[in-house]
Design a protein around this nucleic acid. Structure first.
Length: 287
DNA sequence: AATTCCCGCAACCGCGAGAGA
DNA sequence: ATCTCTCGCGGTTGCGGGAAT
């Protein structure tokens, strides 16, 4: 749907709410194209750092937290845009059956997607479909839904936050049932079959984005993994390709934020899903 | 045409963890 | 040990477009 942010052509009404915040007045609400440009230019030139400093040095009247979010969810150059493909949806469902609401970990295995995006997709679309699949006997659920149900994950009984759908089903017969993830009150052994873990599996370097590797501690798409120099190079190339170099080197956000300028790599879906099937659970105990 | 309702999505909020003084 | 700051995460809010009435 549509209020979508400053799409190339749609300059949205910018919320100009401001709040007092310590040293000064901080803007809140939607980001203006000018703010995006400031942040993008700063990030391209200087890369990651302390977000509070970034906010200040980039000349933004935003808190660092807001800048970080904007970068991660919208400005980052490797973001994949557009609707989720059936393969991605399948993968999300699969991952969620294992990981629960650990959106960042799920996102780490979907190159070019953000945790916020996946979370929204889940809450708005998949949840609804699962519900329908669970409630309707007249219409057969999609294979995805069937698989999800087969994994022991059915319709979420309530909107209780913090617990995943996967957590709704315990297995008291599982000898490892006592190994609960405290934060989510969930035993991963309830859902995940005990497989031997393949080593050296994983899909790497998908279009410059990190992808599935052989354990759950793989940071995946986390920004901290990005090489600011390479990113800068990427951005520079993009700019060159657009034949739009300004002498001052400033980079227009609209040149970078758009369908054509984002990650469009090919995915080895079968490989990803195969790997997901055998996702290890080691880092459940590390967290 | 006007109004209400639905809902997708961007962004905010609060919290916990970790680092450093 | 304690405080402060920053980061990252997950849950929630609320705006606004489009559908329904």
């Amino acid at each position: 749907m549509g209020m979508r942010n400053n799409d190339n052509n749609n300059v949205m009404v910018v919320v100009t709410e401001k709040v007092k915040n310590g040293s000064g007045v901080k803007r809140k609400g939607l980001w203006s194209p000018e703010e995006d440009e400031k942040l993008m230019n700063y990030m391209v030139r200087n890369g990651q750092g302390c977000w509070t400093d970034i906010a200040r040095n980039a000349g933004l009247q935003r808190c660092g937290k807001s800048c970080r979010l904007r970068w991660i969810n919208y400005l980052r150059p490797d973001l994949k845009r557009g609707a989720f493909s059936p393969q991605e949806e399948h993968l999300i469902i699969h991952l969620h059956s294992i990981l629960g609401n650990r959106w960042s970990q799920i996102a780490a295995r979907l190159p070019g997607r953000t945790d916020n995006e996946i979370k929204n997709f889940w809450n708005s679309t998949i949840k609804k479909r699962l519900k329908n699949a669970g409630n309707t006997t007249t219409t057969s659920p999609s294979p995805n839904m069937q698989e999800y149900a087969a994994a022991g994950v059915l319709v979420e009984p309530s909107s209780s936050s913090g617990s995943s759908m996967a957590t709704q089903f315990g297995n008291p017969f599982n000898p490892n049932h006592h190994l609960m993830d405290q934060q989510h009150n969930n035993s991963i052994f309830d859902v995940v079959p005990m497989f031997n873990l393949p080593h050296e599996v994983g899909v790497e370097n998908l279009g410059g984005a990190m992808a599935l590797q052989n354990d759950l501690s793989v940071p995946g798409l986390e920004v901290s993994n990005y090489d600011s120099v390479n990113d800068a190079q990427y951005l520079s190339n993009t700019n060159n390709n657009n034949n739009n170099n300004d002498d001052d080197g400033s980079i227009k956000v609209e040149e970078l934020v758009g369908v054509g300028n984002h990650w469009q790599g090919e995915m080895d879906w079968e490989g990803l899903l195969a790997n997901v099937t055998s996702l290890p659970y080691l880092d459940f105990h590390l967290q």
